[in-house]
Amino acid sequence: MSAADRPLLSVEDLTIEIAGASVVDGVSFAVQPGEVMALVGESGCGKSLTSYALLGLLPDVAERTAGSVRLADTDLAALPPRRLRKARGKDISIIFQEPSASLDPLATVGAQIAEALRQHEAVSRREALARARDMLEAVGIPDPDRRLHQYPFELSGGMCQRIMIAIALICGPRVLVADEPTTALDVTIQAQILDLMKRLVAERGTSIVLITHDMGVVADIADHVAVMYAGRIAEIAPVDDLFARPAHPYTALLLASVPRLDVAPKATLATIEGLVPSPGDFGEGCRFTDRCPLASERCRAEQPPLFEERPGHRTACWHRDRVGEIARAAA
């Protein structure tokens, strides 16, 4: 493989256990420079844990038991804590779902942005604040000179998320991980934050790993999509191909349950029957079996590998040739 098409970020076989149950199981994906990779799935599918694991920020109860997180030539998962700290915020950054809670309530916005910069670069306090100010401008915050000296409680959630983005990007990382960055925000603010992220990708060539449960957000911003179900990747594909021709029953049902404007008003919204199994109840086979209209004996007994359905489009389903039936039934 030549250097040109080697991915910037490559996650291989990532496995995370909580109390002996594998809540993330053999997850692999790769992100190219300047590309947006979306990890999609229901609550509890392991997408947020996956995002924390990229920076080695798993909560105490969770443990990464296997897998690598390769950023360029470095396996972040194998780094000793000191080296990993040097990479966090500098090579790879993360923003979270609750922007207001992610800022220290007792420190000014400027101090927190400057702190991120001074952690990685030997700059004076004054220069750090000057660059923090420029960063505030870059993330579209009006009146940055005043905002610099304000406290998080004086700012709205959308403002706080812009500040989190400023903190995340001030050292110029190559990868930005965004864990449901717009979930806690109003719809109009959501759109602004997504636009900002799109602009940053374009201007700086930053790759984004976007965690979301919102198919609308995926369609808006992602280049590639990995659909996760119960800790495993069900399907991974370029975004257009995934929306046009889903090759996993879960993806097809997920897409069918997105509200649409072109169907009759008051029509019942399609839902997926049943619940995600809890980590203790995972069987041997495909974890979607109990909710899948195509399920067979084989699904129950044997976990399907990721089949390459089309170039770049892989799906973990034994009955991938029949997924079109679900899509047609939903339409």
């Binding site: 924390y52 915020g89 609750e98 809670a101 992610s102 702190e115 952690q119 903190i167």
Partner: peptide, 14 residues
């Protein structure tokens, strides 16, 4: 246990 602690760790702080 608060979010800002995780966020500060994510900035590279010990």
């Amino acid at each position: 246990g608060k979010d800002y602690v995780r966020a500060a760790l994510a900035r590279g702080l010990s």
